[in-house]
Amino acid sequence: MRVARIDEKICDKSSFCPAAASCRFKAFRVILTTSFRVNISIDEEKCTGCGVCVRYCGPGAIKLIEKEKAL
């Protein structure tokens, strides 16, 4: 089974993250830190590995990996 993983070095931490908004499983946690920056994380228990968020991530910071490798 696959899960989404965010590369923090690539993520632009935009408060308008289209990848987080695209997740119909509500697997993204978006916490506002400043007016235009957020901390974004993925709840791997909710993530189904469907890959929709990967397509919506403009900077390409989200990749799908095998869950065994995510541990």
Rank of each mutant, 00 (worst) to 15 (best):
R24Y: 13
V54A: 03
S15Y: 06
I42D: 01
A4T: 01
V54D: 02
I6F: 02
S15E: 07
F25C: 11
G51C: 08
I40A: 05
A21G: 05
K63C: 04
T48H: 11
I62N: 00
Y56C: 05
V3W: 04
D43P: 11
A27W: 02
G49N: 05
D12G: 08
L71N: 13
R29E: 10
V3F: 09
E66Q: 15
Y56A: 14
C50Y: 11
S14L: 05
C57M: 10
D12C: 12
S15D: 07
G51T: 02
V54N: 03
K46V: 05
V54H: 06
V54G: 04
D43C: 10
I31R: 09
R55F: 11
C50G: 10
V54K: 05
S41N: 10
E44I: 14
R5L: 15
C57Y: 07
N39R: 11
F36P: 00
K13I: 04
I10N: 03
T33C: 09
S14E: 06
C23F: 07
G49T: 05
M1S: 14
A70T: 02
G49V: 09
C17L: 04
E8A: 13
N39M: 08
G58N: 08
E44V: 12
R2S: 13
C23E: 03
F16E: 13
K13F: 10
G58D: 07
F25M: 15
C47E: 02
K9P: 01
S15A: 08
C17N: 03
D12N: 11
G51Q: 04
K26P: 04
C11M: 07
E66Y: 15
I10C: 03
A61Y: 04
T34Q: 12
K9C: 00
F28N: 01
I62W: 02
I65R: 02
K46P: 07
V3T: 08
F36T: 10
I40R: 00
K63Y: 12
D12M: 10
Y56R: 11
I31S: 08
E8L: 11
R24C: 06
S15G: 07
D43I: 08
C11R: 03
G58W: 09
P18G: 05
D12H: 10
I31E: 11
R5W: 15
I40Q: 00
M1Q: 14
F25E: 15
A27E: 02
C11E: 05
R37Y: 08
A27S: 15
T33P: 04
K67I: 15
I31H: 06
A61N: 01
V38N: 06
D12L: 10
I62D: 02
F36C: 06
A61R: 00
V30G: 01
C57I: 09
K67W: 14
A21S: 07
R29T: 08
C53P: 10
C47S: 05
S41E: 12
F28C: 03
I6G: 01
M1C: 13
A4D: 01
